[in-house]
Amino acid sequence: MTDLVLREDRDGLATLTINRPDKLNALTVAVFEQLHEHVLRLATETERIGLVVLRGAGKCFSAGHDLADISAGERPPKPSFQADVIEALASLPQPVITAVHGHCYTGALELALAGDMIVAAESAKFADTHARWALTPVWGMSQRLPRRVGIAKAQEMTYTARTYTGREAVDMGLANWCAPDAGFDAELEKFARSILANSWFSLRANKRLYMETEGMPLRAGLSYEIHRTEGRGPDMQARIEGFKNKTSKVS
């Protein structure tokens, strides 16, 4: 079977790569099936994987939902399968970064929004083109996009179906940062390593807090944080001792 989604693990970082470069990584049921297998496995590997990156092979992240697949009559293994896979990716215990270069259109944007953070190369092109094809979203666009950029900007993207650059994505809050294509991989590696250097316990616990309190009124969210926080991690004392030792050597 062709590997439509590749996985590479390196020093706590798992990189998933959509691997249909000849089709601009257009998303098919088969792509989602393989992505689902990787996500299920990653959810059980919190002790050896602290961070996940999702990206695309070749010229772009993904041109979106494969229109040929739609017109041929898709047969997912169950209703709402693709949406469920995206939700499983978004719900991974580990933080998820979506790294976008080139096209990131419609279904691909819905997939990208599963990332806790989106980072962009200058070549990135983001768009919600559902309206161009007489379609409406079923993979989460109407819910995740306005939570990321605000309702007014989300409506602008949806109603115009226009394309936004990586720099524009940063300006609207869709992407966390944008870098020139030539240095994108190096910046992504540096960013990922800065996250992985922190406590993986804290990364997972803070992600749960963000997920579980999203949409709560302020008082309810504060109460949740106070009474249901996970507190100190098993590596806290070692980290404090390491810091003390480091500072004593400097002094």
Rank of each mutant, 00 (worst) to 15 (best):
M1H: 11
T2R: 13
L4F: 04
L4W: 01
R7D: 07
E8A: 15
R10C: 10
G12V: 06
G12A: 13
T15V: 14
I18Y: 04
I18C: 05
I18H: 01
F32R: 00
F32W: 03
Q34F: 03
H36Y: 13
L40M: 13
L42R: 02
T44S: 15
E45P: 03
E47Y: 11
E47P: 05
G50L: 04
G50M: 05
L51S: 02
R55P: 02
F61G: 00
H65F: 05
D66P: 03
L67W: 01
I70C: 00
I70K: 00
S71Y: 05
R75H: 12
P76S: 10
K78P: 02
F81N: 03
P93C: 07
P95G: 08
V96D: 01
T98P: 04
G102M: 04
G102R: 00
H103M: 12
T106C: 08
G107C: 06
L109Q: 02
L109N: 00
L113K: 03
G115W: 02
V119Y: 00
A120D: 05
A121S: 15
E122I: 12
S123I: 08
S123G: 14
A124G: 07
F126T: 02
T136I: 14
P137S: 15
V138T: 10
W139R: 03
W139F: 12
I151R: 14
A154I: 07
M157W: 02
T160C: 06
T160I: 11
G166K: 00
R167P: 06
A169L: 05
V170E: 04
G173M: 13
W177I: 09
W177P: 01
P180G: 11
E187G: 11
K190S: 14
S194I: 10
S194C: 14
L196I: 11
W200V: 05
S202Q: 09
S202C: 12
K207W: 06
K207M: 06
M211D: 14
T213V: 10
T213N: 07
G221Y: 04
G221N: 11
E230W: 10
G231S: 09
K244T: 10
N245W: 09
T247A: 13
K249G: 14
S251A: 15
